[in-house]
Design a protein around this nucleic acid. Sequence first.
DNA 1: CTTGACTCCGTACCTAAGTACGTAGTTTAT
DNA 2: ATAAACTACGTACTTAGGTACGGAGTCAAG
Lengths: 137, 137
Amino acid sequence: MSKSASIGPELTIGQLAKTAGVNVETIRYYQRIGLIIEPIKPAHGYRHYHSDTIEQIKFIKRAQQLGFSLQEVAELMSLGHGGCLDVRKRAEQKREKIDRQIQDLQALRETLNQLINTCKRDASDQYCPIVESLSKI
Amino acid sequence: MSKSASIGPELTIGQLAKTAGVNVETIRYYQRIGLIIEPIKPAHGYRHYHSDTIEQIKFIKRAQQLGFSLQEVAELMSLGHGGCLDVRKRAEQKREKIDRQIQDLQALRETLNQLINTCKRDASDQYCPIVESLSKI
DNA sequence: CTTGACTCCGTACCTAAGTACGTAGTTTAT
DNA sequence: ATAAACTACGTACTTAGGTACGGAGTCAAG
């Protein structure tokens, strides 16, 4: 209570993990692979994490849920190195990749949708059009 | 040449792998995890694979590319057990999941797009709006 | 009838993305 | 001032989805 009367938004790894909604070990793992930087260890005591790291971790998690690997997340996060032109180029590449992902998913969605509609006819039927056509998707 | 003058569409594991475009080991792996059934081994000789298995493997690969895990692929493939109603229900759940994925990706795409547009102003600038806002995606 | 290619099978190994564990140090609450 | 809780660190283990390897059997051609 004496020291650090809320000078800056600093957290221990446990607090960070809790507020970011991940495991402590996950943070340590991200540090190991260089995805987030490990704050220097003070001569005495625990490492302090800046509260910005919360957003960073949440970003990682969101990107992951969208199908990006940690490698790709690292690329997304490193867009800041190389000047505005380079950054824009890389962002455009990412956008194209996302576009392809969306198109693939939409195609699958459409296929699935058609199957569901053909199936509407007789719910208790033993014969099922979905099953029949699934192997030919 | 004498035997099996193209009686049925039967293949060795190597032929199957080649035509399906996967590694022999991959097929053996799918068998290990129960994703495709291993044909019985004849008393003498090699196992025969029905050519339908080609389509099955291709289906697995396509589904995987769309972000389904092998676990989910197994679910998709087992949709045939339980009657048409159950099948449709499960297909609808899949569709909802895909819808959410598409929406998330579209949101990310839009964010990225806005960043790219703000960045158009001065390509050689040191200050880069993308970098500034990336942490808040 | 032997050689080369292929199959069978088990086990080991690989990467990605963590999770768990043991020991030692630190902090905090009582 | 001592126990409970937390951090630090290294190492090991886990799951998914394969890939590789080694030895033994089998098949087809020359």
